[in-house]
Design a protein around this nucleic acid. Structure first.
Lengths: 154, 154
DNA sequence: GTGCCTGGTCAGGTTGCATTACGATCAGGG
DNA sequence: CCCTGATCGTAATGCAACCTGACCAGGCAC
């Protein structure tokens, strides 16, 4: 109780804990080669039709180069593949492979599980309040001129 | 509304927003040369008697080398200095200079201001609930075997 | 003393980004 | 139909913020 810990510190620790938990459980289910930096792909890719690199970069707030590296990595590991875009010969569509699809589904399930675990440990109302507060914060932040860097997940 | 955004993403965005705001305001008050990576020092140093490098490394969850680099940087910029430890000739005590003290005080004030801003935008009860939830999460997390990586602030 | 532990530093490597520059393609006038 | 300018992805390069491993000086126990 002695010291009031700064909010960003608390936010960062909570995020770190959740991400670490995610990767631990992903590894436990056989996805041992997925790293946080792949999050910019999984978090925003269209599971059905795939997405363009530029789209993923926009959404994640990273540069095309950074996302391109993540895609290279995921392609090597068999989670995605690059297909030509029939509408634009410059562009490529990044699509999930079967394995990539499984990884995405698993990660989504684990996120839900973690949130439920937190609810059990803290009480459902508290976690609901936490989510609600963060979502509101996101909305008011989006309206401001500074814009959001976005990022995350994996 | 369509998609439920993962909690870690929300946490990360909130943290990012707060940290960016902190540095913007710090710069506005003349502290233009403080970066996030200096946080491991400011967040855990004893403002009165100073702290050892090893202590800061422990608390922040970083290696001695990483914290040492931050200290080097802050020393060059005049925020801290290394003094010999009278109790142990191997050790050095990292102490805030006058300027470092001012920077720490300013950052604390700004953190409070940001939290109050959030309260105005979202409602006081919501931010109080947010803080409370994060603090509880921290406490249950600390009890687990995985331990906390800690980190942050600046 | 001898031997082990600990505080800090030095050297070198990796990761995750950014900036700049580029060839290929598209889209819209003249 | 070509020319201009924007856009898609890539390549090269650099840098910040970390890490691991090796080391020395000093403390501590026997």
């Amino acid at each position: 109780m002695s010291e009031r810990i700064a909010l960003p510190t608390l936010l960062a620790q909570a995020k770190e804990a959740a991400i670490a938990e995610l990767h631990a459980r992903m590894a436990g289910e056989g996805f041992t080669d997925i790293r946080s930096s792949h999050g910019c792909v999984f978090a925003f890719i269209d599971p059905e039709g795939g997405s363009r690199l530029t789209y993923l970069a926009d959404r994640s707030g990273l540069t095309k180069q950074a996302v391109g590296e993540a895609v290279d990595d995921l392609e090597e590991r068999g989670y995605v593949r690059r297909a030509p875009d029939p509408l634009d010969k410059r562009a490529k569509i990044i699509k999930l492979t079967e394995r990539g699809d499984a990884a995405l589904a698993t990660s989504k399930r684990i996120f839900d599980e973690i949130e439920r675990d937190w609810q059990e440990q803290l009480g459902e109302d508290i976690v609901v309040a936490l989510r609600s507060a963060l979502e509101r914060l996101r909305r008011v932040g989006a309206e401001e001129p500074g814009a959001t860097p976005a990022r995350l997940r994996g």
